[in-house]
Design a protein around this nucleic acid. Structure first.
Lengths: 113, 113
DNA sequence: CGCATATATCGATACTTGTCAATATAGAAG
DNA sequence: CTTCTATATTGACAAGTATCGATATATGCG
């Protein structure tokens, strides 16, 4: 499908999963979290957690840091910024203002007609 | 998998697709757009556009309004607000501040240890 | 070294999804 | 009513992916 080539889409796809959203939210609240602590929050097996963390890592969402036996994960500030910017770009736009109709928004693809 | 039950996850899943992101961006810029105009922007067949518009509709992202032969789509302001709020909830958190270590963030799941 | 714990990888499987061709529905116009 | 255009639905298929069990790797400890 090659749908995940665009980095912004990859960022969105990574967060568009209940388990990964839960992980990111926990990281938002608690800061760096040990990988072993996600098994509890998400009710999934350990390999599944590892898989989701890899997806988040490869999407640029998180950084991993080894501390002895554990691995701590943390949200990358750049990722959060990119996400916020992306969200800010999605707005109702001229949407509601044109609800009055009668304007230019009434005729579709007039470049071809 | 029952992954799409949470409305917020549904909102994210709906936007986490290149075609649908393109649609939402076009709607953000131009306001209400005729469904016939998405075929050009996204380089997909008409049934595919219709499918994506349905996904966006069912996720609460857009409203459809019939105007004669055409159907105009527009972003729902509530959806944009929900998306912005959701994005604002994902932050680096205590992440970077704890990079100094030595604090409570060093010991994982101590409730069990 | 050997043992224990934490994390990652592999392999298999079931489910989801994006896509299009064909067809159906809806409205406008003759 | 017939025809034309726009949109939606159906059916089928390919590709992606979330999940887990089994296993591998890594680190710390004795």
């Amino acid at each position: 499908m090659k749908r995940a080539v665009d980095p912004e889409v990859r960022l969105l796809q990574a967060v568009a999963d209940p388990t990964r959203l839960a992980i990111l939210r926990q990281l938002s609240v608690e800061g760096p979290v040990c990988a072993c602590d996600f098994t509890a929050c998400c009710d999934v097996a350990q390999p599944t957690v590892s898989h989701h963390l890899r997806v988040l890592r490869e999407a640029g969402w998180v950084d991993a840091e080894r501390r002895g036996t554990w691995v701590f994960y943390a949200i990358r500030p750049e990722a959060a910024e990119r996400f916020h910017a992306l969200a800010g770009g999605i707005v109702p736009g001229a949407a509601r203002r044109a609800a009055e109709l009668g304007g230019a928004a009434t005729a579709p693809h007039r470049d071809r007609a």
